[in-house]
Design a protein around this nucleic acid. Structure first.
Length: 453
RNA sequence: GACCCUAUCGUCCAGCGGUACAGGACAUCGCCCUUUCACGGCGGGGACACGGGUUCGAAUCCCGUUAGGGUCGCCA
C-alpha cells in the first residue's frame, strides 16, 4: 500500500459504546488526523445473535457526539445502506465471500486444514515476537494449553468465520497500516501476525493501549453504569471535555498541560508518549475538565449545547427571542455545571410569572414575614432605577441596603427567591437584567402579596 | 494451570543513573475573599509495593516476590 497512515475502529454492535472503546476510537482518530491519514470505521457484526440496527446506531451516534468523523465506513446503521470509501462493504456480515475466498487460499497453500467440519489454521509452534509501539517488543510463546493443540479455528463447522480471521482479512484488504487497540488484544496478536505471514504480507504496526479500569481498580464491565459513553451524554458532559479527559487516561504531553481543545489534541497527540499501565476512571477529574471546558467554550457553543440540553429535559426555548435565550443561558455558563443541571439554574427564565412558586425551605429562609418591608422597599427602588442593567441594579440594591442599615444579603436572597423561586442561581443582578423590569416587578409584587404579616 | 502486560501521593500524570528530603493536576484539609451556589487567592498533609543485585551513585538498569490487569473459545 501507500505510506499514508490508515487506521480503523472496529467495534462490535453490542448495544452500547464502551467508554474504553470510545477512547480507542479517539486515539485512532487522533493518530489519523495527526499524521494526515485515514480513519476507517468497520462494523464487526459477525455475531448475528447480538447484531441489530439499533446497536449500530448507538456506535455511530456515539462517535458523532464525540466529534470523531470517519473517512471510510457506513453512513447509516443500515447494513446494506450507503457508505464512503473504496474498501467496502464496511459491515463484516456483508463480506462473507471474501473470508471464504481467503480461507481456501490458506487451505490451498497448506496453512489450513479441515477437522471435525471446521477449518483450522496451522499455527507456528515457535514463539512470535510482537513489535508494539506502546509496549515494546513482546515475545509470546504458546501457553500450556496451546502446546497441546496450537491450531485454531478459522471457519466454524457452521460456516461462520471467527473474529481473529475476519479481523486480519479485513485489515489486510482494507490496507490498514496501524492497529491501535486495547491491550486485551495483545496476547492474541501472535495469532494475527501468524495469519498475515501465512498470507505472505507484513503485519501492520501495532500499538496496544492500556485499559480503563473502575475507580476501585476492578475491570470495567457492562454492568458498571459509567462504562457506557451514553451515561456521560445523558449526564450532560460537554463532548470536548469527555474527549479531553479520555486522552489524559494513558497519554500526556509531558509538559503538564491538561486542558486541550480538539485541534490542540490533534496537533500534540502522539503514540510514542502513550503509557503502558492501566488507568482508573476518576469522575471528579472529569467533572473538573468539564468545568474548565464549559467556562472557556465560546458563548455560541455554550448556548448551542444549552438549548439542546433544555429541550431534552422538556424546556422548549423556541417561543422566546433568540437573544433572550442566549442571554439567559449565558448567566449560567460561569457555573461550569453539567448540562443536565441547566434547568435548575435557568428554568425560571422560561416560566410564566405565576409558575414561580418557592418551596417551603425557600420561603422560610428568604421570604419570611420579616423580609416583607425590605422587599417592598426594593420594589420601590427598582421602580425608579435609572436603567434596568446589572450595574444599576447592583448599585440600587446596595444603596438601599446602606439606607436601611441591613446587610446586602438581607435584600439579595428575598429578591432571588421572589423572582426565581430558589435560593441558588446565577448572579442576581445579571439575571434581573435578563429577566427585564416587567417580569421582575410582577414577581416581586406576587411574592410580597403572598407574605403574611 | 500456562503465558503476556503493568507497578511513583487516594486518583491521573511528570521523572527515563547524579541538578530530587521526587514535580503538576484532581480530590482532601485549613485560612482569606464573597449577594446565593460557586469561582478565585494563599497554605498544609500525602507516593517511588517489597527483597536482592549492578554502580562511586538508583524512583530510574537487572532478577525475584507480591499485587493488579489481560490472554489461552467452533465469543468479539
Amino acid at each position: 500500500m501507500s505510506d499514508v497512515v490508515r487506521v480503523r475502529f472496529a467495534p462490535s454492535p453490542t448495544g452500547y459504546l464502551h467508554i474504553g472503546g470510545a477512547r480507542t476510537a479517539l486515539f485512532n482518530w487522533l493518530h489519523a488526523r495527526h499524521t494526515g491519514g485515514k480513519f476507517i470505521l468497520r462494523i464487526e457484526d459477525t455475531d448475528h445473535a447480538r447484531n441489530s440496527e439499533a446497536a449500530v446506531e448507538v456506535i455511530l451516534s456515539g462517535l458523532r457526539w464525540l466529534g470523531l468523523d470517519w473517512d471510510e465506513g457506513p453512513e447509516t446503521s443500515v447494513t446494506s445502506g450507503p457508505s464512503r470509501g473504496e474498501f467496502g462493504p464496511y459491515f463484516q456480515s456483508q463480506r462473507t465471500n471474501r473470508y471464504l475466498a481467503r480461507a481456501s487460499d490458506l487451505k490451498a497453500a497448506g496453512h489450513a486444514y479441515e477437522r471435525d467440519g471446521a477449518l483450522f489454521f496451522r499455527m507456528p509452534r515457535d514463539p512470535i515476537t510482537i513489535e508494539d509501539r506502546v509496549v515494546g517488543n513482546v515475545v509470546r510463546p504458546l501457553t500450556d494449553r496451546e502446546e497441546l493443540d496450537p491450531d485454531w479455528v478459522l471457519i466454524r463447522s457452521d460456516g461462520q468465520p471467527v473474529f481473529h480471521f475476519v479481523n486480519v482479512v479485513d485489515d489486510l484488504e482494507m490496507g490498514i497500516t496501524d492497529v491501535i487497540r486495547g491491550e486485551d488484544h495483545l496476547s492474541n496478536t501472535a495469532k494475527h501476525i501468524a495469519l498475515f505471514r501465512a498470507f505472505g504480507v507484513a503485519p501492520p504496526r501495532y500499538a496496544h493501549i492500556p485499559l480503563i479500569l473502575n475507580d476501585d481498580g476492578s475491570k470495567m464491565s457492562k454492568r458498571n453504569l459509567g462504562a457506557s459513553l451514553q451515561h456521560y451524554i445523558d449526564q450532560g458532559y460537554a463532548p470536548e471535555a469527555v474527549s479531553n479527559y479520555l486522552c489524559l487516561l494513558g497519554w500526556s504531553p509531558k509538559d503538564g498541560q491538561e486542558l486541550f481543545t480538539i485541534p490542540e489534541l490533534v496537533a500534540r497527540f502522539d503514540l510514542a508518549s502513550v503509557n503502558r499501565s492501566n488507568a482508573r476512571f476518576d469522575l471528579k477529574k472529569l467533572d473538573h475538565i468539564h468545568f474548565e471546558h464549559t467556562r472557556r467554550m465560546s458563548r455560541e457553543r455554550f448556548v448551542e449545547l444549552g438549548i439542546q440540553s433544555l429541550r431534552v429535559r422538556g424546556i422548549e426555548t423556541g417561543n422566546f427571542p433568540a437573544s433572550y435565550v442566549a442571554s439567559a443561558l449565558l448567566t449560567a455558563q460561569e457555573k461550569g455545571k453539567l448540562f443536565s443541571e441547566l434547568p435548575i439554574w435557568t428554568d425560571f427564565y422560561f416560566k410564566a410569572d405565576p409558575e414561580i412558586i418557592p418551596d417551603e425551605e425557600t420561603r422560610a429562609k428568604a421570604l419570611s414575614a420579616s423580609a416583607k418591608p425590605q422587599l417592598e422597599a426594593l420594589l420601590a427602588a427598582y421602580s425608579s432605577v435609572p436603567e434596568f442593567t446589572a450595574p444599576a441594579l447592583e448599585a440600587g440594591l446596595k444603596g438601599l441596603a446602606t439606607q436601611l442599615g441591613v446587610k446586602v444579603g438581607a435584600l439579595v436572597q428575598p429578591c432571588r427567591a421572589a423572582v426565581t423561586g430558589k435560593l441558588v442561581g446565577p448572579s442576581l443582578y445579571h439575571l434581573l437584567e435578563v429577566l427585564g423590569p416587567e417580569k421582575v416587578m410582577v414577581r416581586l409584587q406576587s411574592a410580597i402579596d403572598r407574605m403574611t404579616a
